[in-house]
């Protein structure tokens, strides 16, 4: 069953076309990693899926709803497609538990006590139940990102979009975030992950996609993708990445 269907997506900023026709079909329960050089348009594709960016043309269907249709309630679609940002974007004026319960309380109209119960169980899941009363600035980068994942899960979404979730982290903090993501994948969550973590893509993804110059240059199972890259750009990119 198709969870996200992207048909001929184009996105331009003024005269600059950054997405030049992308088609993508992501099945329920699938983990898709998107890699590519910076400026390739990979984050833009992700941000179009929950319409943080408005596509210039094309269609995007999330869980059966066409997000470009004026009749579609985009706020509802966004509760079905959670997002985790590179810079965490936690709410600094609300404590950790409040960050996780804001959506359930204000969007789902859940009672405060039910939301707190849900929030604590999600914080438990990401290993941060003891930080519930702390403020975001008192956490490390890795902890912040785990709270952000708990927040994205708080509306029980059908898919989570990860926009370079470990790129802003110190190297020693990357592992704890990837661990939570692995766990989510093993529970069957549909995930679209824009990342530079090749190890994660190799181990966890069902499919890896290489985007460069606004189009999908190659997509394959991780095994084939990394061992037999066909596209010369991808070969070049993987060569540069593995040097580090």
């Amino acid at each position: 069953m198709s969870m996200i269907k992207i048909i001929d997506l184009h996105k331009s900023y003024g005269d600059l076309e950054v997405i030049k026709g992308i088609d993508l079909d992501i099945k329920s329960g699938e983990v898709v990693c998107i890699i590519g050089p910076s400026g390739s348009g990979k984050s833009t594709v992700l941000r179009c899926i929950n319409r943080l960016e408005t596509p210039t043309s094309g269609r995007i269907i999330v869980d059966g709803k066409d997000i470009m249709e004026p009749a579609t309630n985009i706020n509802h679609v966004r509760t079905e497609a959670g997002m985790v940002f590179q810079q965490f974007n936690l709410f600094p004026h609300i404590n950790v538990l409040g960050n996780v319960t804001l959506g359930p309380v204000k969007v789902r109209k859940m009672s405060r006590s039910d939301a707190d119960k849900l929030g604590l169980s999600l914080l438990e899941k990401v290993g941060l139940a003891d930080k519930a009363k702390n403020y975001p600035e008192q956490l490390s980068g890795g902890q912040k990102q785990r709270v952000a994942i708990a927040r994205a899960l708080s509306l029980k979404p059908k898919v989570i979009l990860f926009d370079e979730p470990t790129s802003a982290l110190d190297p020693e903090l990357v592992g704890e975030v990837l661990e939570v993501m692995r766990q989510l994948a093993s529970e069957g969550m549909t995930m679209v992950v824009v990342t530079h973590e090749m190890g994660f893509a190799r181990d966890v993804a069902d499919r890896v996609i290489f985007i460069d110059k606004g189009v999908i240059q190659e997509q394959n199972t991780p095994k084939e993708f990394f061992s037999n890259p066909a596209n010369p750009r991808l070969r070049d990119f993987l060569g540069k990445v593995s040097e580090h």
Partner: peptide, 9 residues
């Protein structure tokens, strides 16, 4: 963006 992404208006 974070606010909108959790479905807030």
């Amino acid at each position: 963006e974070a606010g909108r992404s959790i479905g807030l208006t």
